[in-house]
């Protein structure tokens, strides 16, 4: 595999933020226009992870 493929986007700074969304703590990656992509749900309740709205990769509006 070429090195460029492996290291693609490695130099880009990713903007991770901690946000409360529907009463749960999330780590989101901030995008334009107040949107964010869910990276991780911070919860100890296993049922929260079955909730579709907290699935990693989902886009949410946080602003």
């Amino acid at each position: 595999m070429p090195e460029e493929t492996i290291l693609e986007g490695f130099d880009q700074k990713r903007d991770f933020r901690y946000k409360q969304y529907k009463g749960k703590n999330l780590i989101i990656e901030s995008k334009e226009n107040g949107k964010g992509v869910i990276i991780q749900l911070l919860s100890t309740d296993p049922n929260d992870f079955l909730n579709q709205s907290f699935l990693p990769g989902n886009e949410i509006i946080w602003e």
Binding site: T44, D45, P46, N47, N51, Q52, S53
Partner: peptide
């Protein structure tokens, strides 16, 4: 709206909310 959209577009339904007496870290 999100729920209806999920059913309409993806055929997914929300799982019923159950309480768990065990938590996970």
């Amino acid at each position: 709206g999100q729920k209806t959209e999920l059913i309409n577009q993806l055929g997914q339904t929300q799982l019923p909310v159950a309480k768990s007496n065990i938590h996970v870290i």
